[in-house]
Computed example of a mutant assay.
Amino acid sequence: MSNQVIVYSTKNCVECTYVKEFLTKENISFEVRDVLEKQEYQEEVEKFGFLGVPVTVVGEKAVKGFTPELEQLVKLAKQE
């Protein structure tokens, strides 16, 4: 359960789409949380020190954007 992957995003966010496509390609299951649908999701993003999306979370680690650090999170998610 600690390797659960959560992607905080919004509709029509191109970078968010890239992140979700990348995770799908890597066969990583993930939960999508739209920060505009629930205030608590935005608050969760802020707890990681970010204001915008996408933010991808695995356990206690978070990465903002579609960046090379995302690959490190994928490695964490694959460890089980």
Score class of each variant (00 low, 15 high):
E69N: 13
P54I: 01
E43G: 04
T67M: 05
L70C: 07
K20Y: 00
M1G: 15
N12W: 10
V58F: 03
E44V: 11
Q79A: 11
K38N: 14
L73V: 12
K61A: 12
V32T: 15
P68D: 09
E80M: 03
Q72V: 10
K38L: 12
K75T: 12
L73G: 07
A62Q: 02
F66Q: 01
F50H: 07
E60C: 09
D34E: 15
Q79G: 09
Q4E: 15
V63Q: 10
E40C: 01
L23I: 06
K64N: 12
V55W: 03
E43K: 11
K38H: 14
E44D: 15
R33C: 10
K75G: 06
L23A: 04
K78P: 01
F30Q: 03
V32Y: 04
F66S: 01
L36N: 15
E15F: 01
F48L: 03
E26P: 07
L73N: 08
V35M: 02
Q4S: 14
T56S: 07
Q4M: 13
N12Q: 14
K11H: 12
N12I: 08
Q39G: 06
Q4N: 13
Y41M: 05
K38M: 10
V14W: 12
L70A: 02
N3P: 03
V45Q: 03
K47Q: 07
